[in-house]
């Protein structure tokens, strides 16, 4: 359960050293993307269109923040993670095409994503769901906001963060999946729990 302080861009080598249960504090550029930003990014890639910024070595954050404009400057008020499972349908292609090294979210991701992480070198790092003010505290600056037509939560927010964490590595690039382990164990408890409840 080592503690890493990483700076973006993160290299494949750096990310392959991380193991489940390790803790990361991240400094640098984090880009938010939810369902529709993932979908659009992949549509852009397919059409040969460039994304608003190069995501290689950066962290993608499953988050739809609350932001407030003070004068001409956006300020992040609350920025906790959203449920990552919804992005499972896009994330393998996202990792493959854009070389993101860290995916930050909550609730874990499935096998398809974990396989891509193993193949291309990336990790999934969990931030405490709902801990939005703690997350916002780590945001030093909104560098830009892209695709605002998608609405505030779905826009792509390019954030400069400092010591963002603690992030728990929950899927590593060796194919270990902490959420899946907990879930499998819970499923295996079912017969014993049914028995205790007197469920037939």
């Amino acid at each position: 359960m080592a503690v890493y302080r990483l700076k973006t861009p993160v290299s494949e080598k750096q990310v392959r050293e991380l193991k489940v249960n390790d803790t990361i504090y991240l400094t640098g550029t984090v880009v938010t993307a939810r369902d529709y930003a993932h979908r659009r990014a992949l549509e852009y890639h397919k059409a040969g269109k460039k994304l608003p910024l190069d995501l290689a070595g950066l962290a993608v954050f499953h988050c739809g923040p609350v932001a407030k404009k003070e004068g001409n400057v956006w300020k992040i008020v609350a920025a906790g993670p959203t449920t990552s499972a919804r992005m499972d349908q896009y994330e393998d292609e996202f990792i493959k095409n854009f070389n993101v090294r860290i995916v930050i979210g909550k609730g874990g991701m499935g096998k398809k994503t974990a396989d891509a992480m193993k193949k291309y070198g990336a990790v999934y790092a969990a931030f405490t769901g709902g801990a939005a003010v703690l997350a916002a505290k780590a945001v030093k600056q909104v560098k830009s906001v892209e695709w605002t037509d998608l609405g505030m939560p779905e826009s792509m927010w390019v954030l400069e963060v400092n010591d963002f964490g603690p992030l728990t590595v929950a899927i590593d690039s060796q194919g270990n999946n902490l959420f899946e382990n907990v879930q499998t164990k819970a499923e295996s408890q079912k017969p014993a729990i049914y028995k205790k409840l007197g469920v037939n």
Binding site: C63, G64, V77, G130, A132
Partner: peptide
């Protein structure tokens, strides 16, 4: 922290 700063505790 949310209480102290009168900020929404969760972004959702």
């Amino acid at each position: 922290l949310a209480e102290k700063t009168c900020s929404p505790m969760c972004q959702d």
